[in-house]
Design a protein around this nucleic acid. Structure first.
Length: 314
DNA sequence: CTCGGAATAT
DNA sequence: CATATTCCGA
């Protein structure tokens, strides 16, 4: 009778290693909802700061903390057994669902764009993204969906902005809409033909800036993911609050690191942190011109339109 | 065996 | 519906 998983491990102790507010960067990935932060008792710019309370009355049974505590196996609890080894708690556990935020997606798209359809394979994309915690599977899965999206779009004359035919697309569009589609990555394009050998997007190693220095965001991503799953197993749509980035918070989330060089492949990540990569967050006010977005009222709309975006930078 | 891609499951 | 997981082919 083996029951379900026993969570709690790697992040068990991350709480202690939490970053100080001053360490937080304004450019954070904006994850971790304020509620979470509060629940965790972690100082967040919002919570610790005066002003701004949670807007949503959540009665979430704060057993989350309790759970964590009890489950906590880090120091006291002994997680496990020791096993000797002090091995990283990571491994063997299921990791939380990855939440593809617009930012993450943007990076994803950027990577794909700069790589070219041909090189846009999960592994490469993953490496280019340099997002800690991102696995090939994650990217592959998303890539799959992304391709479908592109394909779908191709089939449609693209009703220009925003016009979604079906409501279903609307949701999908939102996420993808946040990312500027570089080219029409249409299938069959690329080098295609050519004959020859010179594939345009082939040997052209675009010096895409492999942001390796943006760890803050990434680490937080990982951390945030855990929390999300921890808190709610809920359905889609979780609101994102803004938060800073835990810097220097390394719990060895992934042992895999990224360096899995392949023969013949140059290390695309130069030692020099090219921080020049600017995540230009898209600020798009869409909503359809004129259309009443909002939840108002209308008719029947019981759908709450949350701003998927991290509202607000600081 | 690793990787990529779609199918399938949750 | 969004991801994860699984399966299969290269």
């Amino acid at each position: 009778m083996r029951e379900e998983e026993e969570e709690g491990s790697w992040f068990a102790r991350w709480e202690e290693e939490l970053p100080s507010p001053e360490e937080l960067m304004p450019l954070s990935q904006t994850l971790i909802t304020p509620d979470l932060a509060l629940a965790f008792d972690i100082p967040t710019p919002s919570s610790s700061n005066h002003h701004q309370h949670q807007q949503q009355h959540h009665h979430h049974n704060s057993n989350l903390q309790t759970d964590l505590d009890s489950s906590d196996l880090n120091g006291s609890g002994g997680a496990g057994a020791g096993a000797g080894g002090g091995d990283e708690p990571a491994r063997t556990l299921k990791r939380p669902r990855l939440v593809w935020t617009p930012q993450l997606h943007k990076r994803f798209v950027d990577a794909v764009a700069h790589l070219g359809i041909k090189n846009a394979v999960p592994k490469t994309i993953m490496q280019l993204m340099s997002v800690d915690g991102l696995t090939r599977e994650n990217v592959a899965s998303h890539l799959q969906k992304y391709r479908l999206y592109l394909k779908r779009m191709q089939g449609l004359g693209s009703s220009s902005s925003g016009a979604s035919c079906s409501p279903a697309d609307a949701a999908t569009d939102q996420l993808f809409a946040s990312a500027p589609i570089p080219h029409h990555f249409l299938r069959g394009g690329g080098g295609g033909g050519g004959g020859g050998g010179t594939g345009p997007a082939e040997a052209t190693f675009v010096p895409f800036v492999p942001v390796a220095a943006l760890q803050h965001h990434q680490q937080m991503v990982a951390a945030a993911q855990q929390q999300q799953q921890q808190f709610y197993h809920h359905r889609q749509q979780q609101q994102i609050g803004h938060f800073g980035s835990p810097v220097g918070f390394d719990h060895g989330f992934l042992t895999r690191g990224q360096p899995q060089l392949q023969p013949g492949m140059h290390r695309m990540v130069p030692p020099v942190p090219a921080a020049s990569y600017v995540d230009d967050l898209e600020e798009g006010s869409r909503g359809g011109g004129g259309s009443g977005s909002g939840s108002g009222g209308g008719s029947g709309a019981g759908r709450r339109v949350l701003t998927l975006f991290p509202t607000g930078e600081d």
